[in-house]
Design a protein around this nucleic acid. Sequence first.
DNA 1: GGTGTTGTTCCATTATTCGGAACTTAATTT
DNA 2: AAATTAAGTTCCGAATAATGGAACAACACC
Lengths: 281, 281
Amino acid sequence: MELSNYAALSVKGDETMNADGDGMAQARETGTLGKLMVLLDLVTHADGPLRFTDILSLAGQPRGTLHRQLSHLVEEGLLELDGDGRYAPGLRLLDFAARSWARNEFRLIAEPHLVDLQQATGETVHLGVLRGQSIIYLDKVEGRQPVRMYSQIGNASPCYCTGVGKAALSLLPAESLVDLLAGVNFTRFTAATHATAASLLAEIREIADQGYAFDREEHEAGIRCVAAPIWSEDRTFLGGVSITGPAYRLSMELLAQWVVPVQRAAERIMEGMRIRLGPRR
Amino acid sequence: MELSNYAALSVKGDETMNADGDGMAQARETGTLGKLMVLLDLVTHADGPLRFTDILSLAGQPRGTLHRQLSHLVEEGLLELDGDGRYAPGLRLLDFAARSWARNEFRLIAEPHLVDLQQATGETVHLGVLRGQSIIYLDKVEGRQPVRMYSQIGNASPCYCTGVGKAALSLLPAESLVDLLAGVNFTRFTAATHATAASLLAEIREIADQGYAFDREEHEAGIRCVAAPIWSEDRTFLGGVSITGPAYRLSMELLAQWVVPVQRAAERIMEGMRIRLGPRR
DNA sequence: GGTGTTGTTCCATTATTCGGAACTTAATTT
DNA sequence: AAATTAAGTTCCGAATAATGGAACAACACC
């Protein structure tokens, strides 16, 4: 019933006001749509279905207004209203996403290289993109284990404690990086999670030099990974590939051996992007 | 570049006007949101990224208006505008969907029973819901094969040529069924696809009596399935479970043997719904 | 039958969207 | 290279849709 750590994982993140000293505030108003998206965010980020009153207190809108907004969302299939008057995410979202995923050019280019990497190492391979302050996982290739699909794909994870996230951040120019980190809320998931922008910055500088990143159980205890960055030539697109697995099986020595394969996969994906999307980008 | 069979697969379907003699027209106007959703539909249903002009001709809006609408969608992350001025579905859709899927109550209830059914038969098991004239697949459990997740999940498939679809339709009262079929555009995917509402109606009457449905290579040549219906007590929620596989492996005799297991799985799922969601529904 | 809670409908006011046209910018032709 | 066409962007008065307060139903819990 309670809301989950909404702010920490929010893709958008700056709905209220970012305590950013810089004058350059990102574009904000999308009028009617923006307000509706806030509601969609609220409902999809909640731990379970929300009643009208719950949303009322969270959204702080007048009752009449909120009621009409929710009705519209329900009518469009973006939300669903069950028999007990509780609002849940709508199935139309699934349909949109399935199409968006199936046709995603970047993912299609990367796919064969992810499979190669999975087979070479036997461990789970992820593909992620930096979007705002979050990493969105675009694909995942696992070994033989009983399929639990969708598990990670589409999930927005924090950028400061994942391999792909840190690899992507290392591509940013120093200034943008500092700006971005200023807005990040550092939640400590494990003992190894970076707790401050300063300590993260230091590691990212290192990663930028080396060209690869580790996740030393920073997001989830017992889970490690190696990641390599991926970027478009115009740097509008930042992401990464990673190999992930349990710490008992993936020693740091083994991870170090996988640096080269991961980097090679990243390079091949970038080569594919140049060919498919044109050399300029 | 061309549009795919947009109308046939559309979840919404009645944007213009349904040739429905009945006075009870379903609610329609969602104002600003509705117009934006039409655009989202256009872009997500296209075969590839669309340029501004493409959308302009498809949407039939004034240029200035369309431009602002697309800008808003892009700003919210629902669409993405690449360097070549082409619009593609945005990644935010993935994030929404991942959450919507992970927390879907019906899916969570059904999951263990799907796994059981998969292990009992060794073939692929699907869970689907009727939404408008389409079946939306909510889950899929496969055997050992190399994982290609997301493949089917979230996809909207026609109701008239899938096992789950026909099973779900068989739950509708005769009147609603006729109304619904009046709006369906019967595309012949294979030689076995029902071509008219009449022939479909005849089979659905049979299915309603029997309590299970076959798909005899009606959607895809070489693919068969058995399905059993699932419904909430108040009949607001209709769907089904199915076992799907290649015709060379799944003889009609074998499928007939699986009727009982599929029905049992469906019953257990419904029992779970009664317990979790309250007896009324 | 009251009384508080929750959800829905109504309508004048206000703010946003609409859409034609003028204006850039890029591509194509002469 | 200049001229021409196409493609995309910005502007602003008019039209429309969103707003939010208040009054109205539905339901539970005393």
